[in-house]
């Protein structure tokens, strides 16, 4: 479903600030795979997400979605097949527009936009039904401006919008990190529910190791622009945080950097 082949990216090349962001990244996701990505700050997780979404293009290497080489596709063109939820709850929705208008934008993702009215009776019904699945009572606030919603509600709406058209790939970039623990738990639960419903192929970056273990069928660990550990479905079932810490030490020969990151549970 998603294939990264030999992706390389260097930032600020040929300057003193040169940084190898991604170094020979190879990754292959089958349809229905849910891969969680962990790693310390600067490991290249977000850069990898941006390579897939098209916000950045690789220096060399190719990105394939659904067997199609999309390396040269612009971000907006790729996003036909890719749903995204960002860390910032404000990033995934248009605050000055209503809930139903935001959903109409999500609805048009894989269709060409024309002069049809965005929210008609039939669509409104569809939006209402989908919102009910969130159990946040948003279905009764269809004409409320999204800017009035709380961070958790906005993130839940972002998640619904990202998955609305059943995209080939769902990218979640630390999408619970900016929320308080109870909201984060709610969003985690909704993520599971929405991904399971349509069996979406998902890649999720998280700083929360427990979340990385609880969600998904595969796990990868990144460090200094490389994928240093890949855990397959069989092994992931019984994986613990201690296992991950040990693995890191074994591979890198050093203790896992103790930033908030890997220690937060």
């Amino acid at each position: 479903m998603l294939k990264l082949d030999g992706i390389n990216k260097i930032f600020n090349e040929a300057t003193p600030d040169e940084k190898i962001a991604l170094d020979q990244i190879n990754l292959d996701l089958k349809a229905g795979d849910f891969v969680t990505v962990i790693g310390s700050n600067g490991a290249g997780k977000s850069t990898m997400m941006n390579m897939i979404s098209g916000a950045l293009t690789p220096d060399f290497g190719t990105v394939e979605i659904d067997g199609k080489n999309v390396t040269k596709y612009a971000e907006y063109k790729r996003s036909q097949f890719i749903g995204r939820v960002f860390q910032d709850p404000m990033a995934g929705t248009a605050p000055a527009m209503t809930i139903e208008e935001n959903l109409a934008i999500a609805y048009s993702r894989n269709k060409s936009r024309g002069l049809r009215i965005g929210v008609d009776k039939k669509r409104r019904e569809l939006f209402r039904e989908s919102l009910e699945s969130l159990h946040l009572n948003l279905e009764n606030r269809l004409t409320a401006k999204v800017g009035l919603l709380s961070g958790g509600e906005r993130q839940a709406l972002s998640l619904l919008m990202a998955t609305f058209t059943k995209p080939s790939i769902l990218l979640l970039d630390e999408h619970t990190a900016a929320l308080d623990p109870s909201r984060a738990e709610l969003i985690t639960k909704l993520t599971k529910q929405l991904v399971d419903k349509d069996n979406l192929t998902t890649l999720m970056v998280t700083h929360n190791m427990q979340q990385a273990l609880d969600l998904g069928n595969r796990l990868i660990m990144m460090d200094k622009g490389q994928i240093i550990l890949e855990v397959e479905p069989e092994a992931k079932k019984d994986l613990t945080i201690a296992d991950l810490m040990d693995a890191f030490q074994r591979i890198r020969g050093e203790k896992l950097v103790s930033d908030r990151t890997l220690l937060s549970v």
Partner: peptide, 17 residues
């Protein structure tokens, strides 16, 4: 709607193709 979203949150509307 897409034009309005462009003025409101351009990153978001790009992520919706």
């Amino acid at each position: 709607l897409a034009i309005r979203a462009t003025g409101d949150n351009d990153k978001m509307i790009r992520s919706f193709s």
